[in-house]
Write a protein that binds this DNA or RNA. Structure first.
Lengths: 240, 240
DNA sequence: TCAAGAAAACATGTCATACAGGTTTTGGGC
DNA sequence: GCCCAAAACCTGTATGACATGTTTTCTTGA
């Protein structure tokens, strides 16, 4: 029920602005532009589409808000590098309007991260392995400062996604980071004793070790265990 | 390396428009608005933020492009129901600018759909089971019309995602549909004989049967087999 | 000849105003 | 109390203006 009609990116949406958005994205496709390549100026587009600058500007601005293009004063817009941009906005919107629950996000994360961690174990470079291990260590070293632990926790999972060498996984995991950042502490608080908290941190160490060892199966098992514990913590905290 | 800084939805992006976007999304959060609820008018926002209507309009328009809000002439903007909106735009952008490969998308789809199909087998309502089966049947009945098969194929996978009862899965799968629509026929063409094509369609029937039988393990196995064949078809066709 | 710097051309960012056309509210008439 | 027309309100689009940032061009001086 997410989309009624088969509506590609935008399409059939009436109004000059939507048409302009389509014209710009089509320009990118037709010209085969890649990240960094320059787009026509607003004045050019105004002429080409025979609409006011107002309309063209709203189109550019919309694409910029989605981070499909980069804009800055004085210079023409350019094609943007892949970025969570719009994706995280959609997720956050879904959560704040109560159309998505935190648990549902955790289920998606678990599903995806069981895969990213396995791929990371197979494909990681040595530098990536080192980075992942570094975050696990930083969590351990700062275990008395929850917010620092959280940031390294998030960085840990993002690093694993990157090491999967599939940008789509990175995209999705990063899009969830905002929500994670707002709920993480809830799970942390349910781990009453310091021993429990350290055990949770050690779970990350286990995952890192399995990745370094190049053992995808073991890595996936540790990741699954980690998520099961996290979800249990959230449920204990009464997150619906 | 998808996002450099820890940048929530928008944040730290200079400019009045970004500030306005934040103000609007914050309004939604603070007021606890849900789908359908009305937002302030552009004039209200203009006064509240002490900026020109141009700025406010570009902010509204940006959120509308991401489908976080609905706009239409004469009436105030309202909070939108969850929609792939921006998500599919991001994916399409990644593919057309060659930052994402079709194979990478198939890996993500496989990962996610192994889960959605298992959840669907556990959670589907009878109506959902019937719908899934219907698409499998329609594929069979129209096996000589590739484009019709394709649309039912896509609808089949979307229906399974819906039956998982986790809107985030639906969101992601639907976001991929546009790309699927543009590459599907390539895989189809590699199935030289009609018998091969029918065998592929029967794979969908097997999945549907497993869902109806409420057998998540079997459903996941059929789904995996289906994806392995699809990916092989794409590779045979030379999709990098 | 060439390099540095000023000027011009070009680009986006923001504002103000205007009007067309759609939607909701108001108020009058019955 | 109900219906309908007018008013009020709202978004969609266009135009013009000016500030400010960036690139290109041209001049000038060594």
């Amino acid at each position: 029920m997410v989309s009624d009609r088969s509506m590609g990116p935008d399409e059939t949406n009436p109004g000059l602005v939507s048409a302009a958005i389509q014209a710009i994205t089509q320009h990118i496709r037709v010209e085969g532009l890649g990240p960094g390549d320059l787009l026509p100026s607003e004045a050019d587009m105004t002429r080409k589409l025979s609409v006011s600058r107002t309309v063209v500007r709203e189109a550019f601005r919309s694409l910029s808000a989605m981070r499909l293009i980069d804009m800055s004063a004085g210079r023409r817009a350019s094609v943007a590098k892949l970025d969570i941009g719009a994706m995280s906005m959609v997720i956050e919107h879904g959560v704040t309007t109560e159309q998505i629950s935190v648990q549902q996000i955790y289920d998606v994360r678990r599903t995806i991260e069981m895969r990213t961690v396995a791929l990371a174990a197979l494909r990681r470079t040595d530098a990536e392995a080192a980075e992942i291990q570094k975050y696990a260590r930083l969590m351990r070293e700062n275990h008395q400062a929850p917010e620092i632990v959280m940031e390294h926790d998030i960085a840990f999972h993002e690093a694993i996604a990157r090491a999967s060498h599939n940008p789509v996984f990175s995209l999705i995991i990063n899009a969830f980071s905002g929500v994670t950042r707002r709920t993480w502490v809830i799970g942390w608080r349910t781990r009453a004793t310091e021993a429990e908290q350290i055990k949770m941190i050690e779970g990350h160490g286990d995952i890192a070790q399995a990745i370094i060892a190049g053992n995808p199966q073991l890595a996936a098992e540790h990741m699954a265990a980690h998520f099961d514990k996290s979800v249990k913590a959230l449920i204990d905290a009464g997150i619906a």
